[in-house]
Computed example of a mutant assay.
Amino acid sequence: MNGRHFDALERLWPLHGVPIPGSPLDVAALFGRRAPLVLEIGSGMGEATLAMAGADPGRDYLAVEVHTPGVANLLAMVEQHGLTNVRVGFGDALELVRHMLPPASLDAVHAFFPDPWPKSRHHKRRLIQPEHVALLRSRLAPGGVFRCATDWTEYAEAMLETLAADPELLNEHDGYAPRLAERPVTKFEQRALDAGREIRDLSFRRR
């Protein structure tokens, strides 16, 4: 991490950080208001979170990341842009969902470019698998949306099959979804495009 990141963690983590594991969240107290909540799993360096939350001030965004530089970078950008609707979790997003968020508390779940774990022996580590989807879906309010994107064809096919198999999720499109206009092209996504990999989006709504 660079000096800017260390400074951001020291100053901003007490204001905007959410440790995981932790106590059940009082979301209204965390954000200082009651508003629809979006959970972003694996926010990376924070570019997508920053752009989407900045353009969507009526909803609150809880971004969760396991790598310290990404947490620090997002905290710094939140301060730089004066956003009040972003909080940053550091740790395992599934742990947060399982123990810190009540059922039907989310307006949306975003899982953009989760680790594809391409080797067959590592598939059990993937985020999008039936038991994890069931857990995440249980935290969506009725009508809430589960959005994903990946640049790995095989993982996209597995995601589509897994999400379609959940009896309480409804695919909003016939197969893959159009690219979400609000989602910016991050440096990570641009590298995938430059390498010739197709990006596939999915959008499922809780019944």
Rank of each mutant, 00 (worst) to 15 (best):
P36G: 09
K119S: 05
E40F: 03
R200Q: 11
R126A: 10
M100L: 05
L140D: 03
L50K: 03
G42L: 07
V133S: 03
L106N: 03
C148W: 08
K124F: 08
R125P: 00
E161I: 08
L9H: 02
D201F: 14
A93D: 11
G17Y: 08
V88Q: 05
L96Q: 01
D151E: 13
P19Y: 10
M1P: 11
E154Y: 01
R126L: 12
F31A: 01
T162H: 02
E10T: 13
P24I: 08
A63M: 07
F113R: 08
W117N: 04
A104N: 13
A177I: 11
L9G: 04
L74T: 00
L135G: 06
P114S: 09
G22I: 05
D151H: 11
G196W: 13
P57F: 12
P102Q: 14
F146L: 14
L193H: 04
F113G: 03
S138D: 15
R147F: 05
R126Y: 10
I128L: 15
L180K: 02
L74S: 01
P184S: 12
P24F: 10
P184I: 11
G89Q: 09
H132D: 02
G17V: 03
L15V: 13
L15P: 00
G42V: 07
Q129C: 03
E161S: 13
V185H: 07
D194W: 02
D92I: 06
G82L: 08
L160S: 03
S23A: 15
A8N: 06
M1R: 05
E131K: 13
L163M: 14
E168F: 02
H5G: 10
F6A: 15
A35Q: 13
D107T: 07
L193M: 15
V27S: 04
N85G: 09
G82P: 03
A111K: 06
L25M: 07
M77K: 15
E157T: 02
S203L: 12
V97N: 02
A53Y: 02
R206W: 05
H122C: 04
T49H: 01
R191M: 10
N2H: 12
R197L: 14
S203F: 01
A108V: 05
G143V: 10
E79N: 03
H122S: 02
L163P: 04
G44R: 03
G89N: 04
G32I: 12
E131L: 04
R98I: 00
E79K: 11
R126Q: 12
A35V: 10
D92P: 03
P69F: 11
V145F: 01
M1V: 08
M45I: 06
A63G: 06
A93Y: 12
A93L: 05
V64R: 01
A63P: 03
P118Y: 10
M100R: 04
A53F: 07
P116F: 10
T153Q: 14
R206L: 13
P167Q: 08
L75E: 07
P116A: 11
